[in-house]
């Protein structure tokens, strides 16, 4: 069988299993029959009101982080790049933490004040970072982008630290948010984040072949006929939309955006025509599983999912890395 087809089948199957585990396991076990048999009202309610939105949100966040991580690593030709490299996530965090710190609540927005503020922070940061990078260097070299991201990221990071230092009783709340969670968000959060996920992913997917060309350097891509400047701009915007919206609804969940693209690459190769979609699916699967562990491991209390991602992801990554390198050596 075609390797690419196999990759899609395996990834889709993993995702299905992850979704099924995510909705069925918990303090109350939900049988699979609940999907079509709504006679058990409690189970149906838990499935559709609590578990399903949570699993879908976890999936969307994981997918967004993984696909933008894959795109940024390819664009910046840097295996250490992740969705947070650009500093957009720090902007989203500052937006969220400001809301928590000042206890803000805009009447019309209500409980959505935080994600809306957070997205605003992400959008502002994105324009500032890209604008500044263009100001420094009109051709927006990869190094310029990385350095600009570091400048903005560390500045906003210090703003965060300042607020944490000055914080009193909301400390736990802020730290909890920063570590990331997808619990108790409901369908509205999904509706809020879905358009960004669709648009952002579509923009990145449109640039899959350009990303392949840019792996050989900007000059090479230019020679192959890629309009490097415009494509780079599109990828940065697409990735930022995904990252900003993901952070806004779930906090800064680490590891997924950095490592899922690497795992996918090690298993299925670095052709972006497949890598982007596969990372999207695998990111969703990983975060759904991590969230499942986060809420069941010390049940009835929950851990922030960001703690679990690295906890589970790192050994899995280590195993794949080891296996691949050994295979390469022999």
């Amino acid at each position: 069988m075609n390797k690419a087809a196999l990759a899609y089948i395996v990834s889709a199957a993993t995702l299905l299993v992850a979704v099924w585990l995510g909705v069925s396991i918990g303090t109350v076990k939900i049988p699979i029959s609940t999907f079509w048999d709504s006679s058990d009202t409690t189970a149906t309610n838990i499935l559709w009101k609590i578990r399903m939105p949570r699993v879908i949100l976890a999936g969307l966040v994981g997918a967004s982080l993984a696909i933008s991580g894959a795109a940024f690593q390819g664009l910046l030709k840097n295996p250490l790049a992740d969705p947070y490299t650009l500093g957009v996530s720090s902007g989203a965090s500052v937006g969220a933490v400001v809301t928590l710190f000042f206890g803000l609540s805009i009447p019309i927005l209500g409980t959505y004040t935080l994600p809306v503020f957070s997205m605003t922070g992400a959008a502002l940061t994105m324009f500032l970072v890209i604008g500044f990078a263009r100001l420094v260097d009109r051709s927006m070299k990869m190094e310029t982008i990385i350095l600009t991201g570091i400048i903005f990221g560390s500045f906003l990071g210090s703003v965060l630290s300042l607020m944490i230092a000055l914080t009193g009783e909301e400390l736990r709340q802020i730290i909890g948010w920063l570590l990331g969670s997808v619990s108790m968000r409901g369908w509205n959060y999904i509706l809020m984040v879905l358009p960004f996920v669709v648009i952002g992913s579509f923009i990145l997917w449109m640039n899959r072949r350009e990303l392949n060309a840019m792996l050989f350097g900007e000059e090479r891509a230019h020679h192959l006929g890629v309009n490097v400047k415009r494509r780079k701009f599109m990828i940065l915007i697409g990735g930022s939309i995904l990252t900003g919206s993901a952070v806004a609804v779930s906090g800064t969940i680490g590891f997924v955006g950095l490592v899922v693209p690497h795992m996918t690459r090690l298993m299925w190769g670095s052709d972006h025509r497949h890598l982007l979609t596969l990372s999207f699916m695998n990111g969703a699967s990983l975060l759904i599983i991590c969230d499942l562990v986060a809420r069941t491991i010390i049940s009835p209390s929950e851990l922030p999912v960001g703690v679990i991602t690295a906890f589970i992801g790192a050994p899995v990554f280590a195993y794949i890395f080891y296996r691949q390198r050994r295979k390469g050596a022999m």
């Binding site: 392949n212 060309a213 792996l215």
Partner: peptide
Amino acid sequence: HAHAFSHTVKDTVALGRY
């Protein structure tokens, strides 16, 4: 020149058709 991520030979050549 060096490149960061691996590509197969055919995929690399196929980029010429971009």
